[in-house]
Design a protein around this nucleic acid. Structure first.
Lengths: 270, 270
DNA sequence: CTTATGAGG
DNA sequence: CCTCTTAAG
């Protein structure tokens, strides 16, 4: 069994001061993909920089305090790669890959975007370049007999069931028609599967992000923007998916919740 | 009786969220001089912008979130003046005067300074200009039969008894020989009195500021840098002085403590 | 260590 | 509303 969790920690230093450390100690996951670490490794306390029993690869952004993705694995990766061959984005702390036996697992933090600003254009540029990488990755991995899993905060809700108030958000970054169409290309044309939706086709949500503003969390005014995006062979082996929604405010150490999937994937061999 | 308190609040918005509001409601003071308000009046909650039962005059700095002095009085001042006629400092949120019957009370926030930086030069420029104002103020008030009280954070410890570790601080901003000599000029040549020291000549302290760093407060590693500086006629009428040191961490809403003096001054008539 | 700021989310 | 930043204290 291969259990993988993806979670945007919204600042790993802050999360570590709240409940991230005991959460990590208790998780059954074999691999944890982190987004928005927002720190250089040297700024992190040791218990999250190199947690006992884990191998860690960190891909911080060049800009201090921004973005940053990491992957924690219980067994040492065969290889790790930061970035996806993009001049603009490879130092932006948004993508890292780790090769494990038979499967490549990536942690992705796609730009959030903001309508009418440069940051939305940056998001669209990222999407354009990244789609090419996804295609290449699937083809190369397929040729080598490997599966691919891209976990992360994709910052796009795909369908109406993926956010609470879809009608009010048709012109909001994260639910724009062109963003949704791009995700459809990832899933329908590029040969990847939205694993959590595949396992739970007929529910709204499960949401993985709730704004800190207002009472969004208590009212479950959330978005499903954190995905496990897997090649078909791996997606077929997914046996369960849970969003680890904190049930009390005390346990909420991020505005996102961990998304955990169990894969019945014996090639991983752990 | 005229009771006056001076306190550096280290951000009035933050202090208001801790214990400042109940402290103000409970104080017996007739006049409260505030320093480091660090907000424009419009950013303050009403209960501290115009507290019930008080008249407030606010002198914020032009730079957002910096400095800022205010005076709260139970009776409406005859007149208020912001600044002391300095082109450089009148919009810096460091000085405001209020005329009450028979006495002019000012709230001063002298620059902190930092050795070897521009901010130390700024402090010295302020000191030079301000000494001239103090002389003029004493002369003019004297001619009009008024007393003067300049309360505030002067950011200088005068003598060895005015800070915990004087030997370690002889080259620290706030205890430099030239700063101490300047305070001596204020007290010995300019006709003003250090009211708290006059009432308590033989004690170390009482300190009014303790760094938030380390355990300075618990170890009483403090400085006496908040003063009541009064013309002789008023200083003679001072009957008691207390530094309202918070005894538990819960009650500590600033790194400074209020310095309260009671003046037996019937001319004030309240 | 703490309070502001401004960017980003 | 929250976590970073930098400046100031």
């Amino acid at each position: 069994m291969l259990t993988v969790t993806s979670v945007n920690v919204n600042g790993l230093r802050a999360a570590a001061k709240k409940g991230f450390v005991p959460w990590l100690a208790a998780t059954a996951a074999d691999v944890v993909c982190l987004q928005e670490v927002r720190a250089e490794p040297g700024q992190l306390p040791g218990e999250v920089r190199e947690p006992e029993g884990w191998h860690a690869v960190h891909a911080p952004a060049a800009a201090k305090g921004r973005a940053g993705v990491s992957i924690l694995t219980r067994q040492k990766p065969e290889e790790v790669r930061i970035g996806f061959g993009s001049e603009e984005f490879d130092t932006s702390g948004r993508y890292v890959e780790a090769d494990l036996p038979g499967v490549t697992i990536a942690s992705l933090y796609l730009p959030s975007g903001e309508v009418g600003t440069q940051r939305q254009e940056e998001k669209l540029r990222f999407m354009g370049e990244f789609l090419i990488h996804l295609d290449k990755l699937r083809v190369q991995a397929g040729a080598a007999g490997r599966e691919v899993l891209v976990c992360g905060d994709w910052n796009i809700a795909h369908h109406e069931a993926d956010l609470k108030n879809w009608k009010a958000n048709t012109r909001s970054a994260g639910f724009l028609p062109e963003e949704r169409a791009w995700l459809s290309r990832v899933f329908d044309e590029s040969g990847y599967t939205d694993v959590v939706r595949e396992l739970h086709p007929d529910v709204t949500g499960p949401y993985s992000w709730w704004s800190y503003r207002g009472r969004a969390f208590d009212a479950d005014t959330g978005w499903r923007i954190d995905y496990h995006v897997a090649t078909r062979g791996l997606a077929r082996r997914a046996v369960s998916a849970v969003v680890e929604r904190a049930e009390t405010h005390d346990l909420r150490w991020s505005d996102h919740a961990p998304v955990t999937v169990r894969y019945d994937y014996e090639e991983y061999g752990a």
